[in-house]
Design a protein around this nucleic acid. Structure first.
Length: 273
DNA sequence: ACCACTACCTGAAGGC
DNA sequence: TGCCTTCAGGTAGTGG
């Protein structure tokens, strides 16, 4: 499931292969993903030189010299990989991008929760305009988080998943961060004290940094069977560890699973209060 | 404004 | 073996 660290890892993997190259051909093998592709996508991007790949939250921003930016979201099953010219497409290979340096980039997405759009003003685009702070950025600190949680009666699990408060966390890293910070997922936002908020800020950053480091490591000589970029095995502490012993020293609790907002929550009822 | 809930989509996994 | 149900998840929309 691509959350911030996975998307950032994809960005780092793609960048050296295609930045500076010109997009020769864009092939759309269906009319839509989650939403229809924009009408003039081909005309806007073909012939344009890619000058940078940026990331905001879980969105990739392919910035071209002609002022157009391709926004891409991987949803939950989207992935990019490079394919040799003679290789044939597989099922769910929906988008194909040929660059003038020989790179043939494929977007693959079985569940099609992903999305793409083209814009000239990414920061004002409806997908990005209302996003909260980047958790690894300078604006995310205890003061910021305290202001976001003030007066909120919603539970912490749901609040951390809300991209308007913090941009880039998904179900896995929310579970992990709350466990590290010893905060119960059912706690209402407004009940957190300053010390807990400060712990949570550190936990969120550490969890993301650790995942990023693990992704970067794996990427160094990344050649999986399918060549997919950006996915890596990362050892989680609570996510999908229902019934196992809590890994906090001296805790002795067992990890439980519950459902909040229709999503699995994993937590330790002993040390997360 | 705030908050809870659901549709979208496919493949994997489990039950019988 | 095979059919059926359930689950996974980010986002956007609905309705209270």
């Amino acid at each position: 499931m691509p959350e911030l660290p996975e998307v950032e890892t994809v960005r780092r993997g793609l960048s050296p292969q295609i930045i500076g190259a010109t997009l020769d051909k864009l092939y759309l093998h269906r009319a839509d993903l989650r939403y229809p592709f924009p009408q003039n996508m081909r005309a806007q991007l073909e012939g344009a030189r890619l000058h940078n790949i940026d990331r905001r939250s879980k969105y990739l921003l392919f910035q071209f010299d002609n002022e157009y930016t391709l926004l891409a979201h991987l949803g939950m099953s989207g992935s990019f990989r490079f394919l040799d010219m003679e290789e044939s497409l597989q099922k769910h290979d929906h988008v194909e991008i040929w660059f003038d340096n020989g790179a043939r980039l494929i977007y693959h997405d079985p569940r099609r929760f992903g999305a793409m759009d083209v814009t000239q003003a990414p920061e004002a685009h409806k997908w990005l305009a209302h996003l909260g702070a980047e958790p690894l950025g300078n604006h995310f600190d205890a003061d910021y988080l305290a202001a976001q949680l003030a007066n909120k009666s919603t539970n912490m699990k749901t609040l951390l998943l809300d991209q308007r408060l913090i941009a880039g966390l998904g179900n896995i890293y929310v579970n992990e961060a709350l466990w590290y910070a010893k905060i119960h997922p059912e706690r209402q936002g407004k009940t957190l004290g300053r010390a807990e908020i400060e712990r949570l800020v550190v936990a969120i950053r550490d969890v993301l940094q650790a995942a990023l480091a693990s992704g970067g490591l794996t990427l160094r000589d990344y050649r999986q069977a399918d060549g997919t970029l950006g996915y890596f095995q990362h050892r989680f502490q609570v996510y999908e560890h229902e019934g196992e012993d809590c890994r906090k020293d001296d805790c002795g609790g067992k990890i439980e699973r519950s459902v909040q907002s229709g999503r699995s929550t994993y937590f330790c009822p002993c040390c997360q209060v």
